[in-house]
């Protein structure tokens, strides 16, 4: 072993010799992989039609984070619409309550002008 060439050749031969995993080791690794694998993308995926509006909606719902996220977004949207349309009297009563004006507590109307929501022009 006088020169690097012999050592290089020996190292190269070592590198060329495969060290195959045993069947038992492969089985152990795959069992771990199976146990830790996340479920297939979304439960909606199995139901999703390949084409059509329903498929697009399901894709969108999945993209937004699934059914719970869509329900939360819907509730937030409806609440925002209500706060924008409803008469502010109810909120005035609420602020008066918080500010200490107790005389209006008995008259507080949580939906004072809901009829405007279904009034036809």
């Amino acid at each position: 072993m006088e020169d690097d060439l012999e050592l290089d050749a020996l190292l190269a031969k070592a590198g060329a010799l495969p060290v195959p995993p045993s069947a038992a080791l492969t089985a152990r690794i795959l069992a771990d992989a199976d146990a830790l694998q996340p479920p297939a993308r979304g439960q909606l995926g199995a139901l999703r039609p390949r084409i059509g509006v329903l498929g697009w909606l399901l894709e969108l719902a999945e993209g937004l984070g699934g059914g719970r996220a869509v329900a939360g977004l819907s509730l937030a949207g409806v609440t925002g619409l209500f706060l924008g349309v409803a008469d502010p009297t109810a909120l005035q009563s609420l602020t008066a309550l918080i500010a200490g004006d107790m005389t209006t507590v008995g008259q507080m109307d949580l939906l004072p002008a809901t009829d405007i929501l279904w009034t036809e022009n």
Partner: peptide, 12 residues
């Protein structure tokens, strides 16, 4: 990570 069962075997 997306749940493809064959991917783990190929990576292994």
């Amino acid at each position: 990570a997306n749940g493809d069962p064959a991917a783990a075997r190929a990576l292994t």
